[in-house]
Nucleic acid binder design. Sequence first.
DNA 1: TATTGTTATACTCTATAACTATA
DNA 2: TATAGTTATAGAGTATAACAATA
Lengths: 157, 157
Amino acid sequence: MPDADKTLRDLAGYTMKRAFSAIQSDLNTTLKPFGLRMTTFSALVVIVDNPGLRQSKLAEVLLIERPNLVVIVDELERSELISRDRAKGDRRAYELSATLKGRQLCDKACIAVRAHDARMTEGLSEDECQALIAALRKVEANGSTRDADKSPHVSRA
Amino acid sequence: MPDADKTLRDLAGYTMKRAFSAIQSDLNTTLKPFGLRMTTFSALVVIVDNPGLRQSKLAEVLLIERPNLVVIVDELERSELISRDRAKGDRRAYELSATLKGRQLCDKACIAVRAHDARMTEGLSEDECQALIAALRKVEANGSTRDADKSPHVSRA
DNA sequence: TATTGTTATACTCTATAACTATA
DNA sequence: TATAGTTATAGAGTATAACAATA
């Protein structure tokens, strides 16, 4: 009984669920030696790339709700990969920066993650891989237009 | 401060996470009027397409652990969309079949899901959409090769 | 009043071990 | 002993309401 899921396999959505599930599983295996997961890794990368970033901005960039980001930042801080410093001029806010240890771990993890990414896209030509990423961005954008009312930073055409 | 996540955006994995997140959100909104979610919908579709399917086979097809499938099947049965019948010849097993109500709901939900899928891939040509699905399948296959030891039904080349 | 970060909470999906009843 | 389905449980991601401190 092959092809029991033929109806689903023609859907981009279901096919993406399966592909993403494979990626997520492989990525978490890849990140485990670094003590990171997909969420903590992506937060660390953005903090390394944007020293002084505030939590609310980080949440906005990663599309993570503020309450959920707190535990991620907590975890990174407990591991001494980042520091939370009171923002001068606004004592409500924190500025996030990576520590030396955080930057070093991030560098190593990034190399492993890029290798993982290459492994998952193996068999695709350079052009096909770029087309895949472009198509995925378009899909994400198509989704964002639906709840434009919930995203005040997105202008409505 | 645009492009705060530029490092992540070059990764197929992270870009797919964002795209899939958008799809999942839109899909659940689409399915809510039918009382379905992505998991229950996909299970219902496979049952409609394969009358008499056993739970363990369904779990294998959908890549869902057997314990997790139980609650999904429970939910579909409680909603009277499917029936569980004792398999003749093996009183341990159940054969799953959709009820008339289940097939009718599935038909309507499928139409809505295909419209959702078209909405999410809007702006992609027919060829680009097929290329996207083909690339996603390749990514999924690349992931499966890693844990071939965990999938005894996959022959190791 | 509004915003930043926080706590508490709940829901979904996922993963594993252990059980039952059959085979 | 092995398999089909089940129960219980735990982890991770996600979403919302409400709060304290500050603006």
